[in-house]
Computed example of a mutant assay.
Amino acid sequence: MGWVKKGRIFNPDGSGDWMHNSVLTPTPLLLGDETIRIYASFRDREGRGRIGFLDLDARDPSRILSVGRVPVLDLGRPGCFDDNGMLLGDIVRVGDQVYMYYVGFQITRQVKFLAFSGLAISVDGGKSFERVSSAPVMDRVDNGLFIRAIHTVLAEGDVFRIWYAAGNGWRTIDGVDYPEYDIRYTESPDGRHFPDACGRPVLGCGPGEYRIGRPRVRKVDGGYEMRFTFDTLDKQYTTGKAYSTDGLSWTRSDEVDVPRSASGWDSREVSYPCVLDTPHGRYMFYGGNGMGRDGFGYAVWSP
């Protein structure tokens, strides 16, 4: 019983404009029973990410059905929080709409970047999206000065449960500045407003680590499972796991169930894992080397 790696699915070949390189934070949405849509951030030649998608055969995710020709979410207006690119945070069905939570990046003079969370909504089943605001829905606060990045939203009853990364500092390693952040939790009555601006810390860095984020939470028997990505001071960027009965108190395990390959596209990194259950099996989609610079692939759960 365990995960069986099936290989790389897609990597831009460098010939495109906005989809020039990299597949960051690949996040699946099941369309009916036969199609999986993967939303992700694709970088242009200047390293700026735009949100696009590709459709896969749900029976055989290695089979690409189509690739979106244009972004479903382009760069924000100059001067706005998302004018220098975006990461996909989460995709959530809310009634007959699809909510897209994303992380917008802005370049500033005094620090490397700022990253806060936006929301766009689709009314056509996920083919196109419109921002609800040109401003972030989760903006800067005292305990999230540089980063507040939503990565999981679960609608449970009349509340939206949110797990996100919050960053307040920078760590210089070999002359390069890297953001420091940890994982927090908050709730929302509608998925658009967040009354508790401070949130609740739920998972912090361990010894020798300086950032832990991209929390992907899903409900499992007995509670919740979280998959996350963390980085160490000696630059071992990798993934871990944690378990909780209530989504608030977590026990970290860091068991490596999808290891790096001996060579190739995922030999240095297995990043941003995201699990999807379908009528045809359970799949995990993840990025490869360079946070997805070498594309993304998948693994299949073998009971």
Rank of each mutant, 00 (worst) to 15 (best):
G288N: 05
V256E: 10
A242W: 07
F230S: 04
G240Q: 12
Y243V: 14
G288Y: 00
G281S: 00
G247K: 12
T229N: 08
Y298W: 00
E269A: 13
A262M: 02
M226S: 09
K235Y: 12
W250I: 11
D266C: 05
G264N: 13
T251W: 06
R282D: 01
D231G: 10
D277S: 05
D257Q: 04
W250H: 14
S249Q: 15
Y286Q: 07
L276M: 13
C274A: 11
P273G: 02
R227A: 11
P303C: 06
Q236D: 11
S249I: 15
F296R: 04
G292Y: 07
M291A: 12
M284Q: 09
G281Q: 02
R282P: 01
G288D: 07
S244K: 13
T238V: 09
R282E: 03
W250G: 13
G247I: 14
L233M: 10
S244W: 12
N289T: 01
Y298Q: 01
R293K: 13
S253Q: 08
Q236E: 11
V275N: 07
E269N: 13
S263K: 08
Y298K: 06
Y243W: 14
V258S: 11
S263T: 08
S249H: 15
K241W: 10
G264S: 11
D254N: 08
V258D: 11
M284C: 14
T245A: 15
S267I: 06
P279H: 13
F296T: 03
V300T: 12
H280Y: 15
P303R: 05
D254R: 06
S253M: 01
P273H: 00
T232V: 01
L276N: 10
S249G: 14
V300M: 09
D294M: 01
